[in-house]
Structure formats: C-alpha cells, structure tokens
Design a protein around this nucleic acid. Structure first.
Length: 302
DNA sequence: AACATCCGTCGGCTCCGTTT
DNA sequence: AAACGGAGCCGACGGATGTT
C-alpha cells in the first residue's frame, strides 16, 4: 500500500469515477486501474464496485478512505509546519552555546532580538566557561550553534564572523601604572597578574604576550569570571589583560579602572557563530541570518 | 463512454564490485 | 568502512486496443 493508492481512493470518492480520479491526479486512467488492482490484491478484497454512473465504495474501500483522509490531513499539516510563514508563526527549537563572557557583553542583544522576532521558537541557551567548550558541544550534537573565538581548527564547521575584539591591560586608578597610555610586557611583569584559566580565548592572548618573550608575572589568581577579575584589579592588587569590550563606559566613568594599550600584543581576535554544515535546520538558518544582519553593527563597535 | 488489459518505456532501487 | 559507479530488476505509467 502506498500514498498514491490512498490519494486515488480519495479522488474516486470525490469524483465518483476512475476517469475523474485520473484527471484530478494528473495521470491516465490505466495508471489508476493498475494501482487499484495492486491495492485489492494486497488487501485480498475488493474496495469498490465499478458501477455507473457512480462507483460505489465497498466496506474495505470505506476503511481505506478513512485512513486516506487522516494520512493526507497529517501530511498537509506537516507541510504547513515547514512552509514559509510570518516570523511570529515560525516554530521549532534552537540550542545555543556561548561563554558567560559572550552572553554578558556581546550576544545578549542578539539573543533578545531573536526571541522578539521569533517568539514561538524555543531558544535554549547553554552558558559555557569558554568558547572552546561551546564548539565541543556543537560537534557532539548537544547544541545547534555556538559562539566562539575564531580559530583555525574548525575544519567541517561553518563560521559566521560577528566582529573582532582586541585585548587591553587594566589597572586601578591608584596603581603605579595608572595614567599611562601604553604598557609593555616587561613593565607588566613587575606586578602581580590575574589571568584567565586555560582554554579561555583571552588566556591564549596573554600566553602569547608573556611566554613569547619570557615568563608570566607573579600569578595572583586564575579566573574566567571577568567581573570578578575587574573587581580584584579595581582593588589595586594587580593587573590583568581582558577583552576591551568588557570594560564598560560605566567602569571608566566611575574612575576605578583604567585601560592601557599593550605593546606587541596580537590585536584583533575575531569571534562569531559556528554551526554544522552537514545539518540543515531552519532555526539555525534564521539565527545565522540575524547574526549576519547584526555583524555590521557589532563590527562598528571596534 | 467508461473501464480493463497488454505491452513498451522510463526512472528509481538494489546488488555487487571497485576505489578511497 | 564508506563512497561511488555500473548492471540488472522492478514498478509506475501511458498508448493502444479489447470489453462491458
């Protein structure tokens, strides 16, 4: 039994003839006869009486018709669900991974816009400690997209650039380096340093800066909580290197933190959205479109 | 006129061997 | 082991024609 046979029974019931069903389904009359014969052979029972002017459905035919009505209705329903529609009618689920830092400083507006534009899409956000962890969850199928720093080892994954960020040194307004515009790695080595934990994008940056020309300054502590790092630095006990976007206008206005450009630091680390190219999901497609739309706005910040 | 049957055509599927 | 490609098979279909 196949879908075409169900369609045929439905068309015969509607038109009252095999010829009518053939016209309705855009096939020839022999095609209908073949399918009916095949259906009756499979059921081991006749489904209709070839009477004139109208064909009469037998009990078996009426049973097939009832199923045909249900199945074709469900297929139409399924088709409707995936057909293009207004944004506020789109349903589905999107699982997003992002570092807590990213959610707080970079992607919050984007996620909010997505929720407002597609209110019926269920958005599940997983906060990870680092962007690398988000990429790992994407590969293992735990999430559908992830926000990560740009990296070379994303072989089969697609990447949509959202923007670039640079890193700056932060000190308190009472610190010995306060008032400086730029600072070198050698000068930073003289003071206790608070660094990110391994695997964090910003840790890679500080590793490159200090380890390429010697050693790290004395390590006061390690943390991936940027707000905590800023708080400790504001107390005047050490320095840190953080993404520039984490130092807000409010931080500057309160005059507790100062930012210094770091000499020789590799600037402009890209970040964006990674997704699996081998899996097609309409919610992922919509989210990527929104990211592309927002990437211009994000890029202008730097 | 409406439907059934025969027969040829075509497209899709399966199987199997080969390649990567 | 997975991917690819060719050969053969099968089912769906349409045209022609027979039957009711």
């Amino acid at each position: 039994m196949n879908l075409q046979q169900l369609r045929i029974i439905k068309a015969i019931a509607k038109t009252g003839s095999i010829q009518g069903a053939a016209e309705a389904l855009h096939v020839t009359q022999p095609a209908i006869s073949h399918q009916l014969k095949s259906l009756e052979e499979e059921l081991g029972e006749s489904v209709l009486i070839r009477s004139r002017p109208d064909i009469v459905l037998l009990p078996a035919g009426r049973e097939v018709l009832a199923v045909a009505e249900r199945v074709t209705a469900e297929i139409e329903d399924l088709r409707q669900r995936f057909s293009p529609k207004a944004p506020d009618e789109i349903t589905g689920t999107l699982r997003v991974a992002a570092s807590t830092l990213g959610i707080v400083y970079l992607y919050g507006d984007l996620l909010q816009t997505f929720m407002e534009r597609y209110p019926k899409v269920s958005l599940v956000v997983t906060a990870t400690e680092t962007g690398v962890e988000g990429a790992r969850q994407l590969v293992s199928g735990l999430v559908d997209v992830a926000f990560v720093p740009a990296a070379d080892n994303m072989e089969d994954l697609g990447f949509t650039v959202l923007g670039k960020t640079k890193h700056v040194a932060i000190v308190s307004s009472t610190h010995a380096l306060s008032g400086r515009i730029t600072v070198s790695a050698a000068e930073l080595r003289r003071f206790p340093f608070i660094r990110y934990r391994p695997n964090a994008g910003s840790r890679t940056t500080s590793d490159k800066l200090f380890l390429s020309s010697g050693e790290y300054p004395p390590i006061l502590m390690e943390s991936n909580d940027t707000e905590f790092i800023k708080r400790v630095v504001a107390m005047g006990v050490g320095t840190a290197i953080v993404p520039e976007f984490t130092v807000t206008q409010r931080d500057r206005e309160q005059r507790v933190l100062e930012t210094l450009q770091v000499q020789h630091i590799s600037i402009a680390q890209g970040y964006g959205l990674v997704f699996r190219q081998d899996i097609k999901m309409h919610t992922v497609h919509l989210f990527r479109e929104l990211c592309i739309e927002h990437s211009d706005l994000t890029m202008k910040r730097f």
